[in-house]
Amino acid sequence: MADSVSVSELVKKIRLDVYSGKEFLKERNVTVSDISRPGLELTNYFKFYPHERVQLFGQTEISYAKDMMSTDDRRDIFNRMAMSDTPAFVISRGLPIPAELMEASKNNQVPILGSNLPTSRLLSNMTNYLESHLAERESVHGELMEIYGLGVLITGDSGIGKSETALDLIKRGHRLIADDRVDVYQQDEQTLVGEAPKILQHLLEIRGVGIIDVMNLFGAGAVRGHTDINLIVHLQNWDKETQFDRLGNGETFRKFFDVEIPKITVPVRVGRNLGDIIEAAAMNFRARNMGYDATKVFDDNLNELIRDNSKK
């Protein structure tokens, strides 16, 4: 988990314009993902002022400051808002910047940034970026692939063939997100996202061959930076003493943070084509999410057969 994101990085990623305080961008850091719309503060109510947040001014805030506040009020309020840990002021829609806000920015070394985007879209873009970079992370040993549009996390003991299976899936047209180590974080109450550590992006290690650059060998369409994790496929060495699910009705989950991800366990034996099996697992998972459950169909067929035999 990153403790903070520099304002200069926020400017770069969200493509913000810098109106004032360019020299302070690297010194200012964002430590929380929430964005403040300072409506109450403009009325001089500072009891719960979230000064550690990025302060976003839209049409409402700028119009109120212009039409309802005196010059002295604007000067006083904006200077009170520009605290030592306030990351930046951001103006949406390309709106004009009040002279008193520009003055407070220079006096207190708080940058003023801007964008032509509507306020709601700019708010969403900044929140999504900050949430993904400030979220708590967990490192998982495995492969993360995008298969038929689903994020599939392949786990298993070291040496069981995860990377070789990932290579097979890449050759079938699926996309690699991360090999060996996957950084996962919770995006919201229902979404878990996985990505590769920066040092391992687009790289795949194959025992006996070494490290290969997947994007260089297979093209940009063979890789992706991140994806939601929808399904976990755990590879486990076959053991006649172990009971594996045969009907698909023994659903299990693995919990990351507050999100539970469905998990299936696939036994590994010589001669089994894991690429075929994982593709089938992904397609079956998608079908179930669309309302078709083959296990339920089998149960219904079995019950119908039992009823027919009972009548005879």
Results as ranks from 00 to 15, higher is better:
residue 192 L to M: 10
residue 13 K to P: 00
residue 95 L to P: 08
residue 29 N to C: 10
residue 45 Y to V: 14
residue 196 A to V: 01
residue 92 S to M: 05
residue 150 L to D: 03
residue 188 D to F: 04
residue 171 K to T: 10
residue 72 D to W: 07
residue 123 L to I: 00
residue 31 T to S: 14
residue 56 L to R: 00
residue 210 G to V: 09
residue 303 N to T: 12
residue 56 L to K: 02
residue 81 M to H: 02
residue 213 D to N: 14
residue 149 G to D: 10
residue 15 R to A: 09
residue 155 T to N: 06
residue 206 I to K: 00
residue 4 S to I: 02
residue 309 N to I: 05
residue 85 D to C: 08
residue 19 Y to Q: 07
residue 49 Y to A: 07
residue 227 T to Q: 13
residue 258 D to T: 15
residue 250 G to L: 12
residue 141 H to K: 08
residue 29 N to K: 13
residue 297 V to I: 07
residue 303 N to F: 09
residue 61 E to W: 06
residue 119 T to N: 06
residue 268 V to Y: 04
residue 28 R to K: 11
residue 302 L to Y: 10
residue 299 D to H: 08
residue 178 A to I: 03
residue 142 G to R: 10
residue 167 L to P: 14
residue 269 R to K: 15
residue 253 F to G: 00
residue 117 L to A: 04
residue 159 G to R: 15
residue 66 K to H: 11
residue 113 L to F: 11
residue 202 H to F: 05
residue 251 E to F: 01
residue 121 R to E: 02
residue 197 P to F: 15
residue 107 N to A: 15
residue 249 N to H: 08
residue 181 R to V: 15
residue 27 E to K: 09
residue 176 L to C: 00
residue 75 R to T: 02
residue 286 R to Q: 13
residue 249 N to T: 07
residue 118 P to L: 13
residue 97 I to S: 02
residue 215 M to F: 03
residue 306 I to N: 01
residue 222 A to R: 01
residue 41 E to A: 13
residue 83 M to Q: 15
residue 278 I to E: 02
residue 43 T to N: 12
residue 12 K to V: 03
residue 52 E to S: 15
residue 7 V to C: 06
residue 252 T to W: 05
residue 74 R to L: 06
residue 15 R to E: 15
residue 17 D to M: 09
residue 261 I to N: 07
residue 310 S to F: 15
residue 151 G to D: 12
residue 115 S to H: 08
residue 130 L to W: 00
residue 161 G to P: 02
residue 292 Y to W: 09
residue 167 L to K: 13
residue 200 L to I: 12
residue 133 H to E: 12
residue 216 N to A: 12
residue 282 A to R: 10
residue 241 E to D: 10
residue 40 L to W: 03
residue 28 R to F: 08
residue 148 Y to T: 00
residue 284 N to V: 09
residue 160 I to A: 13
residue 290 M to E: 14
residue 196 A to P: 04
residue 18 V to E: 09
residue 51 H to D: 15
residue 67 D to G: 11
residue 203 L to K: 14
residue 19 Y to R: 04
residue 223 V to K: 01
residue 104 A to V: 05
residue 272 R to K: 03
residue 189 E to S: 14
residue 41 E to P: 06
residue 258 D to H: 04
residue 216 N to G: 13
residue 290 M to H: 06
residue 303 N to G: 08
residue 286 R to D: 10
residue 144 L to H: 00
residue 193 V to A: 04
residue 282 A to C: 04
residue 105 S to V: 01
residue 169 L to E: 03
residue 60 T to L: 04
residue 174 H to Q: 08
residue 243 Q to W: 11
residue 79 N to L: 05
